[in-house]
């Protein structure tokens, strides 16, 4: 009945009303604000055209935050991808005892509150009484007198943020790859074995090409998440305050810079909105580039979810 199909509109209405009002409109509003000088000094927010964007070109912290954001993401993503693919292959194809237990343990860090993880590592990375230094001493890697003041070093801090992200995310990606690998029909491997391929060749010639759609998915979602990185770098830096960006500002990310500008002293929300817009454009461009470069259309139909 025509009337019946109209209930479809009725049922999706709450979703779209909320989406438009609370998600889409704020983004559009943010675009608008990026052309104003809204701040504590100008609570009215007058139109300033491209001034905020011009200021971005000369903002040293902003430039640094872009570099930091990318560095932290790449340094976590490359090992994350390698570990995830490798472990997925091992756990699905090497007949490991207790594979599901390993899977569970590797995935666990992903679920835990990122803010709490940040604080946990902040405490563990402490200088004299930090647990990580104590472990290194216990293992005999360093001696008592040479404990490393991790959080006083920009390089160490940034490295640890990447490490923590790797720690939190390799299990997550691994689970996606495992699902994709389980869905590869056994016949392909049997056929390859008959043709004389070893385990290693099967992995390169069959597994990898067939899990490509999931790789793209992992890459895109990780990139979007990575460009919006906030929680852990925000809380982990040394000192009593949150969001300092660490020594040498080495973990000041784009979202953190935006947050600091918009919600701490000065409240330069117009200018901060310009950062949000830049970020948005960046996310859009890189996602599209990845899709364009790496996808063939027919591959997009996923084969991850085993049909019940």
């Amino acid at each position: 009945m025509r009337k019946k199909e109209n209930y479809g509109y009725l049922f999706i209405a709450p979703f779209f009303i909320v989406f438009i009002l609370l998600q889409l409109y704020p983004i559009i509003y943010t675009f608008y604000l990026s052309f104003t000088n809204l701040s504590s000094a100008n609570p009215g927010g007058e139109w300033v055209g491209w001034a905020n964007y011009a200021r971005l070109l000369t903002d040293q912290f902003f430039h640094k935050s872009i570099v930091n954001t990318w560095r932290i993401w790449i340094m976590n993503f490359i090992p994350q991808l390698i570990f995830a693919v490798m472990l997925a292959a091992i756990l699905t194809r090497a007949r490991i005892r207790g594979a599901s237990i390993f899977r569970g343990i590797y995935f666990l860090p992903n679920l835990v509150t990122a803010a709490s993880v940040g604080i946990l590592f902040n405490v563990m990375l402490g200088w004299q009484s930090g647990t990580i230094n104590q472990i290194l001493v216990a293992l005999g890697i360093i001696d008592e007198a040479n404990k490393i003041h991790f959080l006083a070093s920009g390089a160490w801090t940034s490295t640890f943020v990447s490490l923590i992200l790797w720690w939190m995310w390799f299990g997550h990606s691994m689970i996606l790859f495992m699902a994709a690998m389980v869905a590869v029909p056994q016949e392909y491997y049997d056929a390859a074995a008959v043709d004389g391929a070893g385990a290693w060749q099967s992995f390169w010639k069959i597994t990898l090409p067939l899990i490509r759609p999931i790789m793209i998915y992992v890459l895109v979602t990780s990139l979007i998440g990575g460009l919006n990185n906030f929680d852990i770098p925000f809380v982990i830096g040394e000192g009593q305050n949150l969001g300092t960006g660490g020594p040498e500002k080495s973990i000041l990310t784009m979202v953190m810079h935006m947050y600091n500008l918009a919600f701490t002293a000065g409240r330069q929300r117009g200018y901060a909105a310009a950062i949000a817009v830049t970020l948005f454009v960046m996310v859009l461009i890189f996602s599209l580039i990845i899709f364009k470069l790496m996808t063939r259309r027919e591959e997009m139909a996923g084969r991850v979810l085993p049909r019940p």
């Binding site: 609370l22 998600q23 409109y25 704020p26 983004i27 559009i28 509003y29 943010t30 675009f31 608008y32 604000l33 809204l38 895109v220 979007i224 998440g225 919006n228 906030f230 979202v255 935006m258 918009a262 919600f263 929300r269 901060a272 909105a273 949000a276 970020l279 948005f280 996310v283 996602s287």
Partner: peptide
């Protein structure tokens, strides 16, 4: 695909 971070300033003002 849209993270909340992108609209947070507009959302706050609203």
């Amino acid at each position: 695909m849209i993270p909340v971070q992108l609209g947070i300033i507009g959302y706050f003002q609203m």
